[in-house]
Computed example of a mutant assay.
Amino acid sequence: MNIGLTGGIATGKSTVARSLTERGAILIDLDGIAREVVEPGQPSLLAIAQRFGQAVLQADGTLDRKKLGAIVFTDPVERKALEAITHPAIRAVMKERMAYHENHTPRKLVVVDVPLLYESELESYFEQIMVVYVPREQQLQRLMERDKLTSEEALKRLNAQMNIEDKKLRANILIDNSGSFAETEAQIDRFWREKRLG
């Protein structure tokens, strides 16, 4: 079985992903893949430098995420241009890894952590979708604290994604992460038992 794991920025997806892997699930992390496809020597990095200029590269040839982020988080057109470069490469690696696990570990739960699952219209790749949820106000607060952002900077990042309340409505499996760690763990345990994964 595979599930797509999503939520919003600063909702605690990583915590839920870690809890699932501790129970034996296999994790495919799209943020990790996104970093892989823009490593020096990768076609995506070359395309980014051509589109956004050499200024988005550091002296050692690696991507300067902060400079690129400053461009794409303030301009939807630029963000779309970046996505057009990186998304096909990320998707290809994701499909390859999902197929590998389907063939080699068919009895294991494969969890694919996809931050922008709905925004990228990837629902069809997964049997079910798990959304990690916290109310938007709490999400904003966590993001400001975690990334040391002003409320304006944090809001820009939130507004670049689909509203968490809309994602909540589309979930097959909802994990409410607004309470304690123990409460989140209890929900994951219940999911694990219901799916008879243990």
Rank of each mutant, 00 (worst) to 15 (best):
R91V: 03
F52C: 03
D113K: 06
D189G: 08
V134K: 02
E102R: 15
K148N: 14
N2K: 14
V56H: 00
H87V: 09
K156C: 12
M98I: 06
F191M: 13
K66N: 13
A70W: 08
V56F: 00
G24Q: 12
A171T: 11
F73E: 03
S44A: 15
Q141R: 12
Q42M: 13
G61M: 10
G7F: 01
L116Y: 07
L20Y: 05
Q50A: 12
V37F: 04
R91A: 12
I71L: 14
P40A: 09
M144Y: 11
Q161R: 08
G12E: 07
S180N: 09
G61L: 11
Y118C: 04
N103L: 14
D166L: 11
V111F: 12
K168R: 15
M94W: 12
T105D: 12
G4L: 07
G69A: 11
Q58S: 10
V110H: 00
S44N: 04
L109Q: 04
R35T: 04
A25W: 03
N163V: 12
V72E: 03
D166T: 00
P115D: 11
Q128I: 02
E78F: 06
L122R: 07
T62M: 09
Y100M: 10
G69T: 01
G12P: 01
M1H: 11
A186Q: 14
V131H: 07
V131F: 02
L46R: 06
K168I: 06
Q54N: 11
R170T: 06
G41L: 06
S180Q: 13
I26T: 10
H87D: 08
S178C: 11
N159Y: 04
D64Q: 01
L143G: 00
E78C: 09
T62P: 05
R51E: 15
K167Y: 03
R190W: 12
S180K: 14
Q128F: 07
E153Y: 02
D29Y: 09
R65S: 04
L30I: 06
I33M: 09
Y125D: 13
H104Q: 14
T11W: 07
D147G: 04
K167G: 02
K156G: 08
A160C: 10
E119Q: 05
G7Y: 02
I3T: 05
V110I: 15
A17M: 06
I3D: 01
P40S: 09
L117D: 07
D31P: 06
G69L: 02
I164P: 03
L158K: 02
G41P: 08
A34V: 04
N159C: 05
L63C: 00
